[in-house]
Nucleic acid binder design. Structure first.
Lengths: 66, 66
DNA sequence: ACTTTATGCAATATATATTTTACATAAAGT
DNA sequence: ACTTTATGTAAAATATATATTGCATAAAGT
């Protein structure tokens, strides 16, 4: 399932996928695939993304539906 | 870093590591190692644990310090 | 028209999460 | 004493997250 909240938070910080990836220490593809919901990041990566974007886990990665 | 919040939430539900593991669809060892902070679970696993224990990601997996 | 920039996609390689099996110990129950 | 139950630990196997490289396209800038 797509992660639109992540994409919005990234754009709010005026970052490209590549720029966010670099700040977080990961590849552009990894960020792109997470935004597309095509895979299942590790907790540490989620935490790094959250801290970079000043959001919490619930802000970016919680989902009500299954 | 140890995840005491997870352990507490599990005990509040009166579940052993093995019982939680089974509900979540994972091995006892995996739960044990996460509680000990010895590895880095996937987001989907964190979400499964949260839903089983009626907690959110921030409740169980957010950490202020690094 | 040409050049960047941003993004999606795909194949192969590598790192690591997770499983499987097994052994050890301490606590609690009988 | 014996048996369960709960937990920690470890080696080897498997699944999968992530990196690497490269190609394709659309939008924006010049």
């Amino acid at each position: 399932m797509k992660n639109l909240k992540l994409k919005v938070a990234r754009v709010e910080h005026d970052l490209s996928q590549a720029e966010l990836a670099e700040k977080v220490g990961v590849t552009r593809q990894t960020i792109g695939l997470i935004e597309q919901g095509k895979y299942n990041p590790s907790l540490q990566l989620c935490l790094s993304i959250c801290k970079t974007l000043n959001k919490t886990l619930d802000d970016l990665f919680w989902q009500e539906e299954d």
